Amino acid sequence: MTIQSKIKYNTSMGRKKKFNSTEVIRAITSVFLQYGYEAASLDDLVKATGLLRGSLYSEFGSKRGMFLAALQNNLDQVKDGEKTIHLMLIAMLELSRRDKEIHTLIQEWCQSFPSNELEQILGSQLLAVANIK
């Protein structure tokens, strides 16, 4: 997914709706990092982005599409960044068993690290998320 500014049309009002996709994805990422996938509600995503439900669905298709955009954006930025690892943990725990595309994305990401490094990265992030030192 290419991240760029886009113009959306509000068909009910007949006027252009502008928003910055990068900023929207940043806000979506924050929601998923705070609540996880399952607990993040559409209302949380609407509030964080300042967009209407229709605009979010038009841009991303679904809550899953929003999560994938957040995950892919973070993977494109820094594959071993704290946010990326946290999103990967969410994907592993909440989505990988039932979503083949996300499962494949996780597998490819995991295979990009030596196994001992991956275990350390995931373990450290899991402890940090759980606030265990």
Rank of each mutant, 00 (worst) to 15 (best):
M1G: 12
M1Q: 06
I3L: 14
Q4W: 10
S5H: 01
I7W: 08
I7V: 07
K8L: 11
Y9I: 03
N10F: 11
S12I: 10
M13K: 13
G14Q: 08
R15T: 11
K16V: 12
K18H: 11
K18T: 14
N20R: 10
N20Q: 08
S21R: 13
S21K: 10
S21H: 09
E23P: 00
V24P: 11
V24L: 07
I25V: 15
I28E: 02
I28C: 05
T29V: 00
T29W: 04
T29H: 00
T29K: 03
S30F: 01
V31E: 09
V31C: 05
F32L: 01
F32W: 03
L33G: 04
Q34C: 09
G36M: 02
Y37T: 02
A39Y: 07
S41E: 02
L42F: 15
D43V: 13
L45H: 07
V46A: 07
K47M: 09
K47C: 05
A48Q: 07
T49Y: 03
G50Y: 08
L51C: 09
L52K: 14
R53Q: 09
R53P: 02
L56R: 07
Y57W: 01
Y57M: 08
Y57I: 06
E59G: 02
E59I: 04
F60S: 01
G61S: 04
G61K: 05
G61L: 06
S62H: 00
S62T: 01
R64V: 07
G65N: 06
G65Y: 14
M66Y: 06
M66W: 06
M66T: 08
F67W: 03
L68Y: 05
L68N: 03
L68F: 02
A69I: 05
L71G: 14
L71N: 08
Q72G: 06
Q72M: 09
N73E: 12
N74T: 11
L75R: 04
L75Q: 06
L75P: 02
Q77R: 06
Q77L: 05
K79W: 06
D80G: 00
K83D: 12
T84D: 14
T84R: 06
H86T: 14
L87D: 10
L89Y: 10
L89M: 15
L89W: 09
I90M: 03
A91W: 04
A91V: 00
M92V: 07
M92H: 09
L93E: 13
L93N: 13
L95A: 03
L95F: 13
R97H: 10
R98Q: 15
R98E: 14
D99K: 09
K100W: 09
T104K: 01
T104V: 12
E108W: 00
C110E: 04
Q111K: 10
F113M: 00
S115V: 10
N116S: 12
E117D: 06
E117K: 00
E117T: 14
E117C: 07
L118W: 10
S124V: 11
S124R: 13
S124L: 08
S124E: 15
Q125M: 13
Q125D: 01
Q125W: 06
L127E: 15
L127V: 12
L127W: 12
A128C: 11
V129R: 14
A130N: 13
A130T: 14
N131R: 15
N131H: 15
